[in-house]
């Protein structure tokens, strides 16, 4: 179980490969990569601020909940901070499990919880200036569909 908060880019292929390396009990690896969306949104760049210290704790706690809830063999979470350009990766979540069901579910759960509980804030730069991204109710809904899991299981 490994969590990184970093400015540096990451190698998605290498991260995915590492999730099942030397583990022939792993039957499935599911992964998610979040990217900076440009295009029709008119975003020229994005800056990510975070709360050093709490960020790492929040991510580790989310991973711990996922590990209690699903049969998970390895988890890797990477979240970038600083200034990023459209097309660049922001976040990576990878989960190795014995079977695909647990890998898919744990991966999606970690991403949904990260979006509502990890202290990151995005600021978009556009041609007309910069603006803080508003939190979306759909993110709260996505997180709440997993139920109140923590502390109980």
């Amino acid at each position: 179980m490994s969590v990184s908060v970093q400015e540096a880019d990451f190698d998605t292929g290498a991260e995915i490969a590492a999730l099942s390396r030397n583990d022939d009990g792993a039957g499935a690896v599911a992964s998610f990569v979040g990217l900076v969306r440009g295009g029709s949104d008119g975003v020229g760049a994005m800056s990510l601020e975070h709360y050093p210290g709490m960020t790492e704790k929040a991510l580790a706690e989310i991973v711990a909940i996922a590990c209690r809830r699903w049969d998970v063999r390895r988890v890797r979470v990477i979240h970038r901070i600083g200034r990023l350009l459209p097309g660049e990766p922001i976040a990576f979540v990878g989960v190795a499990s014995s079977h695909r069901g647990d890998a898919f579910a744990a991966c999606e759960f970690i991403m949904d919880y990260l979006k509502t509980r990890a202290p990151f804030w995005k600021k978009e730069e556009t041609a007309t200036g910069s603006r803080w991204v508003d939190a979306r109710e759909t993110d709260d809904a996505a997180a709440s569909r997993w139920g109140a899991a923590e502390g109980r299981d």
Partner: peptide, 10 residues
Amino acid sequence: VAFFPPVTGG
């Protein structure tokens, strides 16, 4: 104690 707007990472 920290105060902040709703988070928007990911």
